[in-house]
């Protein structure tokens, strides 16, 4: 019996012990889908070849702006293992080489990267805007570290507290990088947003996500001020507040 178990253990080959003939891969906590859009994706349709014959992009129920936008955003690929993530990473265009006005959206599978989605509509986003000239050489690493915190499921530090019940859902639904003529923007989308002063627990948890993003992922100091010409601090805003353009809205800054 003992010999059998030993033999069985020996047949486990990870990519580290056998890069060509590994027989196990590292599952992610959740499967993820990468989406992309840019001015060049507008009006393009994917050819219906077997390699792209995955289910059609579902259109959110909300009519109007969202459905038109959903025709322009392209679903690139879904993956559920660490090994597949790196295969994708090593064969795709990094943010510094994307055309202007392009966006990558990396969201948990089944969640559309729009605030209309059930998982997003009560949520909000942490975001930072970085001047392009100063950050051209940093943005690829920042986006990589953002993706790694997302797929590694380490963005929501509350979850690794041993007292939190197993299976508690992460606040994070997806991450986005955007290229604009003058700046880059990185965003972390959350399922929930604190609605008022009575929401202290959620606010604390949301703030922990923002702090983790600012310090561990982006590499800034805890108290560092980042706002400046074309630059913002790491700021949180609920999607509901983002809609009220022009009106004064509350932001959380870390």
């Amino acid at each position: 019996q003992e010999v059998d178990m030993q033999a069985q253990a020996e047949t486990i080959r990870t990519v580290f012990s056998d890069p060509k003939n590994f027989n196990v891969k590292h599952p992610l906590y959740s499967p993820w889908t990468l989406w992309f859009d840019s001015p060049a994706t507008k009006g393009r349709n994917l050819p219906q070849t077997p390699s792209t014959a995955f289910p059609q992009t579902p259109i959110p129920q909300t009519p109007g702006a969202a459905s038109g936008w959903m025709e322009d955003i392209k679903r690139v690929i879904s993956f559920d293992s660490v090994e597949e993530f790196w295969g994708l990473y090593n064969n795709i265009v990094p943010p510094s080489q994307l055309p202007q006005k392009a966006n990558y959206y990396l969201f948990k599978e089944g969640i559309i990267p729009a605030w209309e989605d059930e998982a997003n509509k009560s949520g909000g986003k942490w975001s930072i805007q970085l001047p392009k000239e100063k950050n051209r050489s940093n943005v690829d690493k920042m986006w990589l570290y953002t993706m790694l915190a997302a797929i590694g499921e380490t963005f929501d530090p509350y979850l690794t507290n041993p007292e939190v019940p197993p299976g508690t859902q992460s606040l994070v639904t997806g991450v986005i990088v955007s290229t604009r003529p003058q700046f880059y923007r990185l965003s972390i989308w959350t399922r929930l947003a604190p609605s008022g002063a009575d929401d202290d627990k959620l606010r604390e948890r949301i703030e922990a996500v923002g702090k983790h993003f600012k310090t561990t992922v982006l590499g800034y100091n805890d108290s560092q001020k980042l706002a400046g010409p074309l630059a913002t601090d790491v700021e949180f805003q609920s999607h509901k507040d983002s809609e009220k353009k022009g009106k004064s809205t509350r932001k959380i800054v870390v």
Partner: peptide
Amino acid sequence: FRYDRDFLLQFMNICKEKPDHLPPLDVIGL
């Protein structure tokens, strides 16, 4: 499982194969 960044980065230079189901990027304007 959750994975820390240092663990994940170890795969970077090993897993380079293009995923079978990656669509041709130029077709989607990428």
